[in-house]
């Protein structure tokens, strides 16, 4: 019953993550700085939902490390947050998959909120807390944009036949 990922599958996952990294460092005007959704976390959550047997905490850990290097945060910070979120998704994927899309958006909002909370706490421990309530807006924008991310990646997955059962 476990689907096996094809090479095309792995390639698509890597490409979608590359796109997420690009969106993460893409410059935004200053007013939109805090609105940037957690693209990488959303992409990771999608692939965990799609292939929880193959893509789970280990993927999240390495993607998180890379995100730390890219965004200049302390090494291990995003890795920790992503591992915890990926674990939560692994535990609930059977339910979340069946949710209607709006309810799924709400769940993603909660997942990203947990992710942001972990980063907020770590930043607090090292004394560099984000001095702005707008920090929390990222989870709102992530939740709002989830349907598009979901349909886009799902179409890719279905059309290209990324996995063999």
């Amino acid at each position: 019953m476990t689907p096996r990922l094809t090479i095309k599958g792995y390639l698509t996952i890597i490409l979608s993550l590359v796109a997420a990294f690009l969106l993460t460092v893409m410059p935004l005007p200053i007013w939109a700085q805090w609105l940037r959704p957690a693209w990488v976390a959303m992409t990771v959550i999608y692939w965990v939902l799609a292939f929880p047997e193959k893509m789970n905490v280990t993927l999240a850990f390495f993607v998180g490390l890379y995100l730390d290097i890219l965004t200049g945060t302390m090494i291990g910070e995003h890795a920790l947050a992503l591992v915890i979120v990926a674990y939560l998704v692994c535990k609930t994927y059977q339910r979340v998959r069946l949710f209607p899309i709006l309810q799924q958006s709400l769940t993603i909002f909660l997942f990203i909120l947990v992710y942001q909370l972990i980063i907020f706490v770590i930043q607090g421990i090292i004394g560099q807390i984000p001095h702005n309530f707008l920090y929390w807006l990222a989870s709102v924008t992530s939740g709002l944009l989830w349907p598009w991310v979901y349909f886009l990646l799902r179409d890719l997955r279905q059309r290209w036949g990324l996995a063999k059962v």
Partner: peptide
């Protein structure tokens, strides 16, 4: 194979990775 994930294995891996991340953060800081 069942449709369920091998849960103990997943939890152990998650914990190992979390500990690793915390160690990395500690060393980096």
């Amino acid at each position: 194979k069942t449709i369920f994930l091998n849960r103990t294995f997943l939890g152990v891996r998650a914990i190992i990775l979390i500990v690793l991340a915390v160690i990395l953060m500690f060393v980096d800081h």
